[in-house]
Amino acid sequence: MPAIELRNIRNHVFSNLDMKVLDGELLVVLGPNGAGKTTLLNIIAGLVDYEGTVLFDGVPVDKVPANERQIGYLFQNLALFPHLDVASNVGYSLRVRGKRREEIAEEVDELLKLMKIEHLKHRYPKGLSGGEKQRVALARAFATSPEVLLLDEPFNSLDIGMCKCLRREIRQIQRELGITTVLVTHNLADAEEMGDRIVVLSGGKIQQVKSNEMLFKNAAVDNGNRSQRFHECLHCTIDCYCKRKEGDYESADSPACRM
């Protein structure tokens, strides 16, 4: 699976952003709303205009259109196709790539089984719960046999139990397949449980890059910049988390931490 490198990325959010995602790792990008997390994913996916260079395994992909970048993207709002049933949603990428019907059916069945949603095969998105939609969207993202997986706030609308369960499952699949993954979130618990490394992004700038353990043990923060409050909040939340250990996780967007 390719390592991802962003060199000198500039657009309406970023000015000279540099970032690396190592081959097969799960990098978590942590930051408050409006930090540019989704824009970062869209740049990697080729969905927005930017200046600078995005490299997959050292090869620039700036001229490669989004539909040829071999990316699995789980959108924040999931973006399931409302007019297609679950099987057709999951098999969409296979259909547009011209695979045979039997092959599509076989692969879709496997993916539905993997995500434990075989029973939803003929249902439409409007009749699914948040967790079920999430699983369908994930199955659809995996159907592309992605070399890079992009996850945008994947656990946002889920309850804590479902969150924990899905985190474990995604992590397991990601490790098994070794897919280079970027997960953006404002939730510290997602970051801690999922990330090999964590990038703290605020105001379109990378504030810290740490291994998961280092960030959560030291929780070093910068002061005197415009993201100070977010960092204070991050600090506070990490401290809270460290004290509680088994308690519920607090989000950087929780009322106590509003910026």
């Binding site: 969905l47 989004a66 539909n67 990316i71 993207y73 709002n77 973006a79 196709f81 990428s93 547009v96």
Partner: peptide
């Protein structure tokens, strides 16, 4: 959003 999703899915 669904158009972007279709694009990333290879359409």
């Amino acid at each position: 959003g669904v158009i972007k999703a279709a694009r990333t899915l290879g359409a």
